[in-house]
């Protein structure tokens, strides 16, 4: 990405305050409050139907909130003087006429974003669509549409980039490319808000997370703080299960069945493998399984959003 030739602009903070949207009796978004800081990539996470897209649509004025506000540098989207140069937005993939080529689509929207033909070609190359730019979008794959949506969002060389589920339909190479692109965009002092229903697809590129479920905020913090919420677990098994259970009870360790992955084994919470090993050795309980599970962010995410992991059950 080239730096803008426009006068230096102060990257603006995205601010969501008490944002609420009801569709009839459905509470799609309920009293949502969070901030997105300049220079950061913020992951906007939640399961399908959590209200992510509705929130983003309210941010850009396509949907009218039932209550609350969403502002960009203190200004509502509909009151921005030059929205395309302030904030680039790619909502879910298909916002293209199938009969138009990618180049025609970008050229059509370029003047409204203050972009010229050279910028269009530059963006086509950036997202890897130069070779297909003359083809009609109707024949594009989902991944190609995602790339075109990103190029459209970047037309005005904005300070803020909002991407709604941009990894949908992208191949692994495309996802890796998008990660480094978002990283580079934020490292230049600009702002990225990227939504996803899969934490692992964005966890390597986000600084902050905003997690929603059922339209409500369940967690907002730097990514590192989310990792601290991960529960350390150890899976343990013994040929003498009665003795093992007795040991666990005497030590007062929290336990649960390990589940399908290790039938009959126990999963112990908030305890290290070394401690269990020492205690079992001291009590003369033979162990044939002692595995410290890596704390998984995905598990934290699923727990926060009230989704069952299927393994912990």
């Amino acid at each position: 990405m080239t730096a803008s030739s426009a006068p230096p602009r102060t990257p603006a903070r995205l601010s969501v305050r008490g944002l609420t949207k009801h569709f009839g009796t459905v509470r799609a978004v309920e009293d949502l409050t969070f901030d997105v800081s300049p220079g950061h990539v913020t992951g906007f996470l939640g399961p399908n139907g959590a209200g992510k897209t509705t929130t983003l649509r309210m941010l850009v004025g396509l949907t009218t909130p039932t209550a609350g506000t969403a502002t960009i540098g203190g200004v509502r989207y509909t009151e921005l003087t030059d929205p395309a140069r302030t904030i680039g937005v790619a909502l879910e993939a298909s916002t293209f006429h199938p009969g138009r080529s990618a180049r025609a689509h970008l050229q059509m929207f370029a003047p409204a974003a203050g972009a010229d033909a050279a910028r269009v070609e530059q963006l086509l190359a950036l997202v890897g669509l130069t070779g297909d730019a003359h083809r009609r979008v109707g024949g594009y794959s989902t991944g190609m549409r995602q790339r075109l949506a990103l190029a459209t969002a970047l037309l005005g060389d904005p300070d803020i980039l909002v991407l709604d589920e941009p990894t949908n339909g992208l191949d692994p190479a495309g996802i890796a490319w998008l990660r480094s692109f978002m990283r580079g965009f934020a490292d230049s002092g600009r702002t990225v808000l990227v939504s996803s229903h899969i934490l692992s697809e964005v966890q390597h590129s986000v600084d902050d997370v905003v997690i929603v479920a059922h339209g409500r905020l369940v967690h907002a913090s730097p990514l590192a703080a989310l990792a601290a919420l991960a529960v350390r677990t150890v899976t343990v098994d013994s040929p003498d299960r009665a003795a093992l259970t007795d040991l666990v009870t005497r030590r007062g360790w929290a336990s649960e069945p390990a589940g399908a992955g290790a039938p009959g084994a126990l999963r112990l919470l908030h305890v290290r493998a070394a401690e269990i090993g020492a205690a079992a050795f001291a009590a003369g309980v033979e162990l044939h399984l002692l595995t410290e599970d890596a704390p998984g962010l995905e598990d934290v995410f699923l727990r926060l959003t009230g989704q069952t992991t299927g393994v912990a059950a």
Partner: peptide
Amino acid sequence: TGDLRHRTIVPTLLADPS
């Protein structure tokens, strides 16, 4: 109606929300 059907209304209103 074509704008609404193919959702080109989205980039259109993003470019100019009025």
